[in-house]
Design a protein around this nucleic acid. Structure first.
Lengths: 227, 227
DNA sequence: CGAGTTTTTGAAGGACATCAACGTCTGTGG
DNA sequence: CCACAGACGTTGATGTCCTTCAAAAACTCG
């Protein structure tokens, strides 16, 4: 089973990351307590429309969040890796679905710690705020990708993004399957596959481990391709 | 000059909207003071990379925020209408550009009221938080649109979204030009134009006012088309 | 080893982009 | 108020990137 090693806070700002890591033993960001929960590969963590009573932080494994259209078309917003917070929403109900990409352990925090916690624990509040702002940043980048980039550019962006999560890594380990990548990049699995082999032929990457690990052979050229 | 009438708070949650409206005279959401500023059509309000010392709330007119790729490709994230907050970011510098779509009046708040304001004025903090969460909601919806919808579905979604901002309206008044719509929907201006005339021919809409106002002749069918 | 799943590869088609020309609107100066 | 120039929008012809449909190869796990 492919799993990202738990790099805490690589996706969330330093403040919350450090704090989260420091309190990992009791699974607590600030003064608020959370409970540990595990999900198997493919399991649903919560789904669109469901009331949201808790929000989550990833301890290990990878989570995907996204939306489904009536006819089954799917768009994945983000993959969440260890340290990332997800499931925070403005309304009473979830507006998107969260599923386990592989075997996942998360900590669930009561939603009351959001409104209440912000009031009573301003430090906690600021951490959540910062976490949300960086989610928005990433959302904006992803909109550029979806709306304006070619398949090649999308894939280059994706691989570099994944690789950046491992300290100075020249490889991207992919816990998710091709369908997930396609639904993240707004492509079909066939195009994902073809684009990867095209990159292999161009000497940009090498596929190992049954296509689950991508070695970034020519990172400089990939960076140019990212657009 | 086309301008949206100032419907305050139609895009931001009730709490902040009401408060904003109540305090409109002194341009103040909570205890924090802001200063009024005006921008002409096409003027830049701030640009990507610039340090962000203030954030804004729209008083009148329409603002577009978005990103530019090196070769000029553009993706507009959102149009901001009266009542909307924009320019709030996690880092020291702006990660996107904001420009006036038409003649615009905004209120600028010092950025310190963000970090500091949250600590000292928890109500203000919660309002900002809620505003950010609804931005995220809309960002997620927009990703589905960009990644998974056809040109026709994109346009139907867009027109209904704009129309929804006027109370029980059967028309969408478009303060922005075709280029903006194209860059918002991830299309070219030609496809925007063709899709609109296709909708006219299908009896879905009618174009009036030199194409700046779209009458939603068959809203039910448009809603189905939204996907 | 073998059935089911996932990934890759191939051939053909379609939706949208690109290139190009024409029409329409806006605003300014006569 | 009209004329004209430039900007904006529409329409047409053609091209292309990505999808769709189809099948084979590779991998997973009992």
């Amino acid at each position: 089973m492919q799993t990202f090693s738990p790099i805490h806070g690589s996706r969330i700002p330093a403040a919350i990351a450090l704090r989260g890591a420091a309190n990992m033993a009791q699974h607590t960001p600030g003064t608020v307590n959370g409970t540990r929960r595990a999900f198997d590969r493919g399991e649903e963590i919560f789904s669109e429309g469901e009331p949201c009573s808790v929000f989550f932080k990833v301890v290990s494994g990878t989570v995907r969040t996204g939306k489904l259209l009536a006819d089954g078309r799917r768009q994945i917003d983000t993959f969440h890796f260890p340290g990332d917070v997800f499931g925070l929403e403005s309304g009473k109900n979830h507006r998107f679905t969260a599923e386990a990409v592989d075997n996942v352990v998360v900590v669930a925090y009561p939603r009351s710690s959001f409104g209440g916690g912000v009031r009573n624990d301003p430090v906690f509040g600021e951490q959540l705020m910062t976490s949300m702002l960086s989610s928005l940043d990433r959302a904006h980048d992803h909109m550029v990708l979806l709306g304006r980039k070619s398949a090649l550019e999308k894939m280059a962006t994706f691989l570099l993004e994944i690789a950046a999560r491992r300290a100075n890594a020249d490889r991207a380990e992919l816990p998710m399957q091709r369908t997930d990548i396609a639904d993240y990049l707004g492509l079909t699995i066939e195009t994902v596959s073809r684009t990867l082999t095209q990159m292999v032929r161009a000497g940009l990457i090498r596929l190992v481990d049954a296509g689950r690990t991508v070695i970034l052979a020519d990172k400089a050229r990939l960076q140019l391709l990212r657009a």
